[in-house]
Amino acid sequence: MRELIAPLLAWYREGQPFALATVVRTWHSAPRQPGAAMAVSAAGEALGSVSGGCVEGAVYELAQQVLRTGVPELATYGVSDDDAFAVGLTCGGTLQVFVQPVTPEHFPEFPAIGESIRSSEPVAVATLLDGAANPGAHLRVTPAETVGALGSARLNEAVRDHALGMLALGSTGFLHIGADGEQRGDELSIFVESFAPPPRMLVFGAIDFAGAVARIGKFLGYHVTVCDARPVFATKRRFPEADELVVMWPHQYLARTEVDERTVICVLTHDPKFDVPLLELALRTKAAYIGAMGSRRTHQDRLNRLRELGLTEPELARLSSPIGLDLGARTPEETAVSIAAEIVSLNWGGSGRRLAETDNPIHHPRG
């Protein structure tokens, strides 16, 4: 829903009712992950997607029904034996979609949720799907407060604790719990959607390749920082897509900025005086990915220098160098695709091979 939040807030504030369809569960090779969303306004306008085109027509009709009745609906879409192109998923997957009306009456928490998402403040939304008389009830959970109600105070407290844990991990998914918050119960099905701040991409080295990497990083949803010690190169004119430009020695900036398990680090300086002290720090962080540009000879020289600084073999093994997948890339844009492909592959456990040469599932579950 993050990419739809600006127009959805506008609809809400204009008094335009709309139905929000959210993927809450998938099986097999479903095309979209839980959290994918589609909205249909009372005027008939549609935004977003829940399946990449397979079931949008059916979901659109269901959304219009929900707008008429004001009653949320939980629908499951899979392969149709009679006509897979009519409603079902031709990919062979199955997905479950929750469609709910969004109005001040049915979803009063929506504006505050939307503002948190838009300002990149962490917020989790717990939605009661079934097992109770009030499907569509919501709980807005932030580290500072909890607003709304799903049922009893004990249920709200239990869901809040789960939601805060999921928010810390940036995870979205199902929660089965007892009607009064019992951990061993499963009467209620609750969908918890986490809107953590975007993960960070730190790009070191203000070269032409960095411009292309910054652009594709933004496309993938990262908050992109470009850092270089040379003010003549680290300019907004050269890097308009970057969220942040830092003029500082790379290792000094890395030492004072936050790096978590979702952060990716791209070292494009390929100059020992910049990248060796930077990588010495980077390889000891929690970063999800650390890649460095340079030839194989440069890579071996880096490894030798880093060993002399005391880095261990397991720490050195975290370094992706030469950076990116073997695509035969030459231009900055092609190289950026290669780097992005490696990041996506490592994030989801892909092989990096051509799909036509594999028989693995196309969509990999994380972990």
Score class of each variant (00 low, 15 high):
residue 263 T to E: 10
residue 73 E to S: 09
residue 141 V to R: 00
residue 337 V to F: 08
residue 32 R to P: 00
residue 67 L to K: 03
residue 178 G to Y: 12
residue 88 G to N: 03
residue 9 L to Q: 08
residue 96 Q to G: 06
residue 101 P to D: 02
residue 73 E to M: 06
residue 313 E to V: 14
residue 330 R to W: 00
residue 142 T to N: 02
residue 250 P to V: 02
residue 119 S to T: 15
residue 221 G to T: 04
residue 214 A to L: 05
residue 100 Q to Y: 08
residue 144 A to V: 11
residue 263 T to D: 00
residue 7 P to K: 05
residue 19 A to H: 01
residue 318 R to D: 00
residue 238 R to C: 09
residue 262 R to T: 09
residue 85 F to Y: 12
residue 55 V to W: 09
residue 198 P to G: 08
residue 297 R to K: 05
residue 326 D to E: 05
residue 236 K to A: 15
residue 298 T to W: 06
residue 255 A to W: 04
residue 146 T to G: 05
residue 197 P to Y: 01
residue 17 P to A: 13
residue 79 V to R: 14
residue 157 E to R: 12
residue 148 G to P: 03
residue 294 G to L: 07
residue 279 L to S: 05
residue 188 L to N: 07
residue 183 Q to I: 14
residue 98 F to C: 02
residue 231 P to D: 07
residue 33 Q to D: 15
residue 363 H to Y: 10
residue 23 V to R: 09
residue 357 E to P: 01
residue 128 L to R: 07
residue 364 H to V: 14
residue 52 G to R: 10
residue 217 G to N: 11
residue 66 V to N: 06
residue 274 F to W: 14
residue 322 P to R: 13
residue 108 P to E: 10
residue 275 D to I: 12
residue 152 S to F: 10
residue 326 D to V: 04
residue 251 H to A: 01
residue 137 A to W: 09
residue 362 I to A: 14
residue 348 W to L: 10
residue 323 I to S: 05
residue 112 A to V: 06
residue 363 H to Q: 10
residue 279 L to I: 02
residue 100 Q to A: 12
residue 73 E to N: 04
residue 132 A to F: 10
residue 345 S to N: 00
residue 216 I to R: 10
residue 299 H to D: 03
residue 246 V to I: 13
residue 101 P to R: 09
residue 223 H to N: 06
residue 184 R to H: 12
residue 56 E to W: 06
residue 243 D to K: 10
residue 361 P to F: 03
residue 75 A to Y: 01
residue 256 R to M: 04
residue 235 T to L: 08
residue 269 T to S: 15
residue 226 V to H: 10
residue 110 F to L: 11
residue 49 S to A: 05
residue 67 L to E: 05
residue 329 A to V: 03
residue 253 Y to T: 12
residue 27 W to A: 02
residue 45 E to W: 14
residue 297 R to F: 00
residue 358 T to C: 13
residue 326 D to A: 02
residue 168 A to D: 11
residue 114 G to E: 06
residue 51 S to F: 15
residue 119 S to A: 11
residue 236 K to P: 04
residue 39 A to T: 14
residue 153 A to L: 11
residue 269 T to C: 13
residue 112 A to L: 08
residue 234 A to V: 07
residue 347 N to W: 09
residue 62 L to T: 15
residue 58 A to V: 03
residue 136 G to W: 11
residue 131 G to R: 10
residue 21 A to E: 07
residue 193 E to L: 07
residue 179 A to N: 07
residue 220 L to I: 09
residue 194 S to G: 07
residue 105 E to D: 10
residue 144 A to F: 03
residue 154 R to S: 08
residue 17 P to S: 09
residue 261 E to M: 05
residue 204 F to M: 04
residue 337 V to R: 11
residue 287 A to D: 14
residue 223 H to F: 12
residue 206 A to K: 06
residue 143 P to K: 01
residue 41 S to V: 03
residue 225 T to Q: 13
residue 89 L to N: 15
residue 29 S to R: 12
residue 195 F to C: 02
residue 362 I to D: 09
residue 361 P to T: 07
residue 115 E to V: 06
residue 153 A to W: 09
residue 181 G to L: 08
residue 133 A to D: 15
residue 114 G to P: 11
residue 80 S to Q: 05
residue 179 A to Y: 03
residue 98 F to N: 02
residue 309 L to I: 05
residue 140 R to I: 00
residue 281 L to M: 15
residue 217 G to R: 09
residue 74 L to M: 08
residue 278 L to P: 13
residue 314 P to M: 11
